[in-house]
Design a protein around this nucleic acid. Structure first.
Lengths: 254, 254
DNA sequence: GCTCTCGTTCGGTCAAACCGAATAATAATT
DNA sequence: AATTATTATTCGGTTTGACCGAACGAGAGC
């Protein structure tokens, strides 16, 4: 992997590297960041200063943290999406009906981004916060989206992000993935069998109104012991597909 | 107002100016942005290129948009906040009990940031998306927070952001505001009477566990015709204060 | 009170941010 | 379809400011 990315504006690249490291470390001081990034302290300090003055970071007695200011940008971007507006209430109903977690995911730059989640009565606590980015091939929603992309786009995404494994059941082979994608395309829905989180299964359907390009996907997820047999193969898919259909219809008739 | 802000890393300042303009215009092309910012197209293009490659912007056939990638940063920052974790479910209950919108706001860099909102059965559609930033003096939640800050901090915030009016009822005089803050401090809750949005009233209580410094505030908001008489002066405040108290207790006993 | 570590400030230097101008691509108009 | 207008993109030079090392200050720990 090429380690040195070269953006047209290098300083902006540095700034975001710092932000991302701060995100990863969940807050840090100047020296800690400088060590982590093998950069001079003064440079890091310059950037932190700038970001704090611009009100994107907060300094809690020496430790810098990502500010909720970023929610303004992300939250606004999300609220502008027709798909999010229409799908959210339906997703809520789906969670209530099934008693499990319902999720909403879109693709951006070849990765999946959770736009929303709704908690059902039985739902277990999850690792997914809103905005979380995941590799598409590790989730049912991601696979549902990929299955409806042209193969060239799928190849591009695999090339861009690879197929890293996050559990022992994650699909790491392109051929295996593609075979499953064509299955999904025929069946209409996708299943994730502990491919992202051990002990969790997930059933997802893509949202593809008008033409073929999927706008995103919805899913229901829960522990393996409640996601098996008839429930997994019939009942849950039926509910997910039905909700997906309602969203598709609502999307076309604004 | 000083027009030329000078950050230690100017390029980062430029990048965020572009991002903020893109946010304000809700997407734009290179030329439009260059005009708006009176910058050369090539410079704007360099930054847009960088931001897109870094996956923070998306390019939809020529028009650049803020990506939901920012949700990852903001959403994570929020999810790490104990206050958010504890207050959210209580806020949900408050919305159900009152049938109106319940809101959660914290202060960051002298402005108010909406962390969450819960929709009651009767709730009208609102202009506030999650992450929205507002001037503290224009909302009941903001005033509830300010009322529990030391005067020096209040002065600093007024100095920093001023007291701009957004409706004809917005408080624009520092003396008037301070008088109201001391009232709020005694009474324990704050009221916003169409000071941010015409036709809307809001009742808020600060969350101040352990020591005096407020962590944020919760509120219930709705149309003026449902927020009057006994409801406004007794019933709603009772519910809001009770919820605030539950949150405070839960905060102290982790 | 001393030391060690961390955050911050300062000024020089050379890389790169910025810009103008030229080119390519797209949309609009006739 | 040809032409024009407008857009996005590329390219290379200039000079600014990003980057860095080193010195300074603040604070915690012993």
């Amino acid at each position: 992997m090429a380690n040195e990315q070269q953006y047209p504006v290098q300083a902006a690249g540095t700034t975001f590297r710092i932000i991302e490291t701060l995100h990863r470390l969940n807050g840090a001081g100047v020296s800690e960041l400088a060590d982590e990034l093998t950069m001079p302290k003064s440079t890091v300090h310059d950037h932190l200063q700038t970001l704090t003055e611009a009100e994107y970071l907060v300094n809690q007695n020496g430790t810098y943290h990502i500010g909720v200011r970023f929610l303004e940008l992300g939250g606004f971007a999300r609220s502008q999406m027709k798909f999010y507006q229409i799908a959210s209430p339906e997703m809520q109903k789906l969670a209530e009906k099934t008693g499990e977690h319902a999720n909403l995911l879109i693709e951006e730059h070849g990765k999946g981004v959770f736009l929303n989640k709704a908690k059902g009565s039985e739902a277990v606590t999850l690792d997914t916060h809103i905005g979380k980015r995941v590799h598409l091939h590790t989730t049912a929603m991601g696979k549902a989206i990929l299955a409806n992309y042209p193969e060239s786009k799928v190849d591009k995404i695999i090339d861009q992000h690879g197929l890293p494994s996050v559990t022992e059941k994650t699909i790491t082979d392109a051929a295996v993935l593609k075979a499953q994608l064509s299955e999904i395309r025929e069946r209409g829905y996708a299943i994730d069998d502990e491919e992202r989180v051990s002990g969790m299964r997930c059933v997802a359907a893509p949202i593809c109104p008008t033409d073929g390009t999927p706008l995103g996907a919805i899913s229901v997820s829960g522990p393996t012991n409640r996601f098996e047999g008839e429930t997994l193969t019939t009942e849950i898919p039926k509910n997910v597909l039905s909700t997906a259909n309602v969203i598709e219809v609502n999307m076309t008739y604004s």
